Amino acid sequence: MPADQDIREVNRTMWSYGEYRHVADLLRPGAVELVDRLDPEPGTPHLDVATGNGNVALLSAQRGAHVQGLDLTDEFFPDARERAAAAGVEIEFHLGDAEDLPFPDDSFSLVTSTYGVQFAGNHAAAAGELARVCRPGGRIGMCNWTSRSWTAHFQEILSAYFPFPTGHQGQPMLWGREDYLRDLFGARFTLATERRWLWYPFPEAEALVAFFESCFGPCIAARNAISPPGRWADLRAELVEMTESFVTTDARGTGVPVEYLLVIAEKESHR
């Protein structure tokens, strides 16, 4: 099996662990923000990449868009389909890879990914595929974690114990930089970006780490694979200490603000 296929298989397995729908609940405000900004019209052909259990797909479909969702694992699809049925909308879900999208050129007026495509192993390939299936005059909308975010620090600690393969696989937070995205998507796209924050309402660092430890696939995979098992206590202690530096109290209560970059990239209307 080629090395890049090995990486995909590892990712597919890793993201299938746990109860991702609970994590998706924390991420939903970012999906709401993105769909509000994009404001898809009824009938808009829309592809949501790394759709998970359908946060963005569902919101867009409720506005009348014709939505298709794609993910590397189909473990999330039963929940996504149940949510769509409950909302009275139809969404097509596909098992597939962001680096090799199974759609013709110029298929969609709207292409989105929230906290997902940035974890593709080959950044240029993934960006190229998003750009390829986006029609001239269409838009790509993304929410990407930044290098300053709690998520970036969380991933950094995990990767110190479990080094990622070579290449960009270990650098997903590059997608949280506007200059990097401009180079990645090129002159065909006009970018608008804004730094935003999610709010994780956990009053203590221990509670937030325990939450991710119980339902976040990469965290569960790390705990299952760590050797000797006692090293997990060291890793976990680092996560708690790091998280304590992010805990803050404001009008919302006590919790952790998590920074991301909201991105809207419009494709030129002519070739």
Rank of each mutant, 00 (worst) to 15 (best):
D6K: 15
P228E: 00
A31E: 11
A152D: 11
Y17M: 08
T146G: 03
N122K: 11
F216D: 04
F154I: 00
F93W: 08
L59Y: 04
D36W: 08
S149P: 01
E238F: 08
F119V: 05
D105F: 00
F76C: 04
T44A: 15
M173T: 00
R139S: 15
A126Q: 04
Y161K: 13
W175Q: 02
F189M: 08
E266S: 14
F77G: 12
A222V: 10
R135H: 13
T166H: 13
E33P: 10
E259D: 01
G128C: 03
D36E: 15
L38H: 06
E259N: 02
E19N: 15
T13I: 12
F119E: 01
N55L: 02
L191W: 10
E266F: 06
G255W: 00
G43C: 06
A221C: 04
F154W: 12
P45W: 03
T166I: 05
F93D: 01
P229F: 02
A265Q: 00
H22E: 14
T254Q: 09
F93C: 00
L95R: 04
Y161C: 10
H270L: 11
S214K: 02
R195H: 14
V56I: 13
A210M: 14
P228S: 04
L184C: 02
G230M: 09
L208M: 10
H153Y: 14
A86E: 08
A205M: 07
E241I: 12
D234E: 14
E206T: 11
T249K: 06
E194I: 05
E99W: 07
I140P: 04
D97V: 04
E82S: 15
M173G: 02
A120V: 09
T112L: 10
L184Y: 00
V247W: 01
P201R: 04
W197C: 08
S107D: 00
E204D: 08
G176F: 09
L262S: 11
C215T: 14
D25W: 13
E19H: 14
Q118D: 06
A98I: 02
L158E: 07
E75C: 07
R231C: 11
E266Q: 15
T73Q: 02
T146Y: 07
K267H: 12
A124D: 14
K267Y: 01
P257T: 11
T243C: 05
W197T: 04
R63D: 02
K267G: 01
N144L: 07
H22I: 03
I226S: 05
E241K: 14
M242C: 08
L239Q: 12
A131T: 13
Y20G: 11
